[in-house]
């Protein structure tokens, strides 16, 4: 166990955990930020996507020790009130079915749009390809990313 100082959604927090614990489980079990989901544990499904210094990463496969000194942003930190253009576009297109993967989808999409404000169709498809939606809402996700790009 080790005491680690983290910056999560703009707040400084200290956790006492095994430093090899993936960021995902620190968020979910220690910081009660459960919007970030567990799907596969091997960085294949994207349900656990967060931003680390603004880049989309799979939090199930990044040890918390490597997040020290970096800024972690989770779905809870994207906005206070669902006002982020990506969240708004997700609601506009009524994207979710079960909804479980959508936080990860939204975190991937918001990182994409920060780097590339007007992505092409194929850039959207490539960027979103690491996030599985078992309900198959991909066409809506695609449309929502385009709407968000327009409104960002």
């Amino acid at each position: 166990m080790a005491k680690l100082s983290l910056s999560v959604n703009g707040n400084s927090v200290t956790v006492d955990v095994d430093p090899s614990t993936p960021i995902l489980w620190v968020l979910r079990d220690h910081l009660e930020l459960v919007g970030t989901k567990y799907g596969c544990g091997i960085a294949q499904c994207g349900a656990c996507t967060i931003h680390l210094n603004g880049n989309a990463v799979r939090s199930c496969s990044v040890p918390v020790s490597s997040a020290e000194g970096k800024e972690i942003t989770t779905i809870e930190g994207l906005s206070d009130d669902a006002s982020h253009p990506v969240q708004q576009a997700w609601i506009a297109h009524d994207v979710p079915q079960c909804g479980y993967c959508q936080a990860g989808q939204i975190m991937t999409a918001s990182a994409l749009l920060k780097d590339n404000p007007s992505p092409s169709d194929s850039e959207i498809s490539q960027a979103m390809n690491g996030n599985i939606c078992r309900c198959g809402t991909y066409t809506r996700i695609h449309a929502a990313v385009k709407t968000a790009a327009k409104n960002s």
């Binding site: 009660e32 459960v34 989770t74 809870e76 906005s79 969240q87 997700w90 009524d94 959508q102």
Partner: peptide, 23 residues
């Protein structure tokens, strides 16, 4: 009439809705 998912706002904000989120 098309009515939006009643949990839509909570879903896009990552609110604890699922069994895995129970604490």
């Amino acid at each position: 009439q098309s009515k939006k998912n009643v949990d839509g706002f909570d879903i896009v904000q990552g609110k604890p809705l699922f069994g895995l989120d129970v604490k």
